[in-house]
């Protein structure tokens, strides 16, 4: 455990909690892509099946349980409890264009050709693109609530901090996982445009709105 990984995990946790609280307090999931949230629930489920097979640490297990629990709670709030506020018309990204190629890639490029390992690889690839329906929704409506941008910033920072973690682990532990690193790079690059808007607009007190 190093500082980049810990702050990355906490940033990830903060993102998840911010989103849950935003929906719960406003009693609305307007502007949130339910499709992205379903993809994240699939990501956590596929990746953390090792909860049943291996124990790493109390920290590791509890974070996994919290991430999975929160992901399903978010999906429940969007598709059941506050379904009336869900903006399905603007959440029109075709997720099969992500899931199918990512599934194929996981079968072709993985560390070990075993069911659990392929599911882990699938989750890593899928996570790197799971935010696309949300970014697509924002580009379609042309705006995002400020609290939604805080969520996206924390979520983007999480994988960015993991990149530093991987550099650290490579130098000090000789550890590297090429699949995670390449997918993490892709994931971080997808947020670059958003990071720019967050710094130039949201941090200066303006609402995030895109030119028509």
């Amino acid at each position: 455990m190093n500082i980049f990984r810990l702050t990355g995990d906490l940033s990830h946790l903060a993102a998840i909690i911010i989103l849950l609280l935003k929906i719960w307090k406003s009693r609305s999931c307007a502007g949130i892509s339910g499709k992205s949230q379903i993809l994240f629930a699939i990501v956590f489920t596929a990746r953390y099946l090792d909860l049943l097979t291996s124990f790493i640490s109390v920290y590791n297990t509890s974070m996994k349980v919290i991430y999975i629990g929160c992901a399903y709670a978010t999906v429940y709030l969007i598709y059941a409890k506050f379904r009336a506020t869900y903006d399905g018309n603007h959440d029109s990204f075709r997720v099969e264009f992500l899931v199918v190629p990512v599934g194929g890639l996981a079968v072709l490029i993985n560390h070990t050709f075993s069911p659990l390992e392929i599911l882990w690889t699938f989750s890593i690839y899928l996570e790197s693109v799971a935010i696309l329906p949300q970014l697509f929704m924002i580009s379609k409506t042309g705006e995002a609530e400020t609290i939604t941008t805080h969520y996206l910033f924390c979520l983007g920072m999480y994988r960015t901090l993991y990149l530093f973690n991987w550099v650290w682990r490579f130098y000090f532990e000789g550890f590297f996982d090429m699949i995670a690193i390449v997918a993490g790079l892709v994931q971080t690059v997808l947020y670059c445009d958003f990071f720019y808007l967050y710094v130039t607009k949201v941090l200066k007190g303006k609402k995030l709105s895109l030119p028509a």
Binding site: M63, G174, F175
Partner: peptide, 10 residues
């Protein structure tokens, strides 16, 4: 080196 003992990251 890939960690053969499993994935220890989240």
């Amino acid at each position: 080196e890939y960690n053969i003992y499993g994935h220890d990251e989240l």
